[in-house]
Design a binder for these strands. Sequence first.
DNA 1: TTCTACACTCGTACGATGTTCGCGTCAAGA
DNA 2: TCTTGACGCGAACATCGTACGAGTGTAGAA
Lengths: 265, 265
Amino acid sequence: MGARSEAETAAAAGWAGIAPPWSPAAKGRGARAEKPALSREAIVEAALRIVDTEGLDAVSMRRIAQEFGTGAASLYAYVANKDELFDLVVDAVMAEIADSWPPHDPKRDWREELKESTRLGVAVLRRHRDVAKAFMGRIPFGPNGLRGVEAQLAILRDGGVPDHVAAYVGDFLGSYMVSTVIEEDMWASRFPGATEDDVARQMGEIRDYLVSLPSDRFPHVVAMAGKMVDADRDGPDRFELGLEIIMRGIASYQEKEKTGDGAGD
Amino acid sequence: MGARSEAETAAAAGWAGIAPPWSPAAKGRGARAEKPALSREAIVEAALRIVDTEGLDAVSMRRIAQEFGTGAASLYAYVANKDELFDLVVDAVMAEIADSWPPHDPKRDWREELKESTRLGVAVLRRHRDVAKAFMGRIPFGPNGLRGVEAQLAILRDGGVPDHVAAYVGDFLGSYMVSTVIEEDMWASRFPGATEDDVARQMGEIRDYLVSLPSDRFPHVVAMAGKMVDADRDGPDRFELGLEIIMRGIASYQEKEKTGDGAGD
DNA sequence: TTCTACACTCGTACGATGTTCGCGTCAAGA
DNA sequence: TCTTGACGCGAACATCGTACGAGTGTAGAA
């Protein structure tokens, strides 16, 4: 319990109905006062808020219910189970991502458009701590996920990328976004409560460990220890490098001018 | 309980010490008969065996202990906690992967070598059901993980790929392998107990759903539904396509001949 | 050979988790 | 005012990871 109003405390203690007349609870079921009433959207919002402040692992049905001053069972009237709830959370984040994208401009270079989309998407994921973990093993085919896919396909096809490549690249870039953020968050989440400095020191220790390996068996690892570990710090550079690698790879499939020739599948 | 010997059953029931003299348990601590004695390696082996037969989520400390006819508490003498155990499992799989790789041959094309490594790695991951999920958010810097990194770096650097690119590509390909297998397994794991046909039907339904979308708002998704969903079935093709995209991207960074000039970092 | 002390095993318990069941309460209709 | 039906949600269940400490077999000392 933290700072909570009397009304919330009353509701949380199960006083609904026997609350004193000056309590909002006395005004009837729907008038449960400041806290938003239970609903699918409100539950998803609350879940996302908890992700932002306490991390994905802190999201439990009880913890969400607590946000409404009630018990976990109440949530099951609006959500089938935790898995479905996470589907909704993922789609809510996909909405943020798709909303962050500028409208498709066929005159721009498709590589730049795609890069920018991916950058913006990663930015949204980063804003929500480790929500990226929830994306793993989930098909983003909710309504907002589809908006994102549609936008990506528009860029790719207008850019002259063959359909069978374009059909795959959406998933590919999605996975890349998610992996990127998960990996970035790894260091921090592995040592909960660690400060930036702690993380930096941890990475220093790992680099020292790599350097200390027998250089006859691990010559390349020893030689590259600095580049491998330090690179993890300035994530943007790594991320941009991967992005550029992917774009160049895709570009090599680009049909410079659209001939009627089908590449088959 | 499945088919188990009398000795195991006795041990499982907590009869250690009061077992009848003809029971193997009576022969003393070390002689617990057929079942391997508790040890770090044996625990990791058991965990991996459960992953293979029942999936990653079925791996609990109790379930592993059951494999030895004992309780969960006994495992903590060999393993600090479940997280460390999973580190060991991951490294054990990394050992399999690294062992599956042929020795580096500088005369071969580095792209082909790298592709083959990745293919073999994915094959190992696939063999262990959804063990790939355990790789997520884990740095593969165990002894065997390092062997793998070393091998990849050797291929890349000998191939003339600049160091700062090579340092990143190892992680990149690792993520790609893991994401690939997780995505492939997604369909199956989402509907536990589903047969191949069930999965195929599920995917058909999704394709139908995509086709049924309003084509004014989702023109590209509707047009590409077939290519997007069906492509999920023959994973190898998608996987190979991604592999080729990555290789072409990396190749664009390749220095054709090694000049003394350092690319800096 | 007997006794002592140590190291290790593992039953039990604790606090979490997701989910289900059904009691009890509230608000609308008769 | 009384009845009725819907639904909120407290309590319970099965499962999880993990800590603790009593009990056990073994090895070394006497």
